[in-house]
Computed example of a mutant assay.
Amino acid sequence: MAQTDIVLVSLGSTTGLRAADDEFAGALRRAGATVEMARAEPPPEGLRTLALVDLAWAYAARKALLAAGDARAVVYSTTTAGLLATTPAAVRFDALSAVNRPGRHGIWQRPVERRQLQQAPLVLPWSEQSMEGAPEDARERAIVVPVPVAGSGAPAATRDVAAVTYAASPEKKGLDRVLRAFAAVRREGEDLLVAGADPEVLPTLPDGVRSVGRLPRDEYRALLRRARVFVTAPRREDYGIAQLEALADGCRLVTTPAPGPYAALPIARELDPRYVAEDDAGLARAIRAALDDDGERYAAAAYEALAPFAPAAVDALVAERVLPLLLR
């Protein structure tokens, strides 16, 4: 049996990470590589600290790699997946422990991650912002490979949904701020739909707001094609794939700035700075302005801004630059 080219060690601790790993593996395969996905099994729930949670995930990732076949190259998806690695390997990530595990939360992860990045033959951040906190020498071996994003289909004939928000983690995504701002400017007949979270974990929703729960991916993207506005107020954003998908499906993006490598934020500022709000009062004004805007310019500009994220562009990058370095 021929040796596999690449084992991709997938932490897969969130839906977004799993989808991103599938996309990256697909790009490698389209470039001609054979790829085996080594998926970590989720550790037990109830671990009390992030330091312990990360240790459990790192152990699960190491176990998944040991169960995989031999390969010419290994890519760890997230630095956490490679924290217990015994051999330097390429690493792909959306954010680093150096910035999202402050203080005691990353007491052991940060120094191990730093050594990992210094030794990695290839560093594959999702965005330029993802390199925040990385050692300087790692930047010399970095190639930004975004998660591909494209429109999911033709826009609905009528955008009959006023606004959508995604609240897989209500606190982190700032759902409370979104609800207050929307309530302040909502007009009769305008609804905000909350996706990505089970209704039982949500607070009591005010008039004009309803939960649609965890929709299948195709149904969720169809909902975006019906929506005029996508609104979010994250307290931290490690990438912002939901925001990028909303832009790709023609929504106007209303957001607040947030710490973290928020790839959609500079795009939002460029498209229309009125829709990037600094506080709750500004968020309400931004929602109202976006709801009242019925022009076509925004969607056309968003399409151009997302050109580097297009699947064909990402495939070309992987084939021409990434794969040759992985297999050299």
Rank of each mutant, 00 (worst) to 15 (best):
Q3C: 08
S10W: 00
L11A: 15
L17V: 14
L17D: 14
R18C: 05
A19S: 05
A19R: 11
A20F: 02
D21M: 03
D21L: 06
L28H: 08
R30W: 00
P44D: 11
W57D: 07
A60C: 07
A60M: 04
A68H: 06
V75L: 03
T79D: 01
T79I: 00
P88V: 02
F93D: 08
D94E: 13
R101Y: 15
W108Q: 12
Q109T: 14
L122V: 08
W126I: 02
S127N: 01
M131K: 09
E132G: 03
A134E: 03
E136K: 09
A138N: 06
A138P: 00
V147L: 14
V147T: 14
V147D: 00
P148N: 11
V149Q: 01
S152V: 03
K173Y: 04
V178I: 02
R186C: 05
R187S: 13
E188R: 15
V201F: 05
G208W: 11
G208A: 10
R210A: 14
P216D: 11
E219K: 13
A222N: 05
L223M: 14
T232Y: 00
P234A: 09
Q243F: 00
E245L: 06
P259G: 06
P259L: 02
A263H: 08
A264M: 10
L265Q: 10
L265E: 07
L265W: 09
D272A: 11
E278Y: 04
L283P: 01
R285M: 07
R288Q: 09
E296P: 10
L306T: 07
F309M: 00
A316M: 05
V318W: 05
R321A: 15
V322D: 12
L323W: 04
L323E: 04
P324R: 12
L327E: 14
R328Q: 14
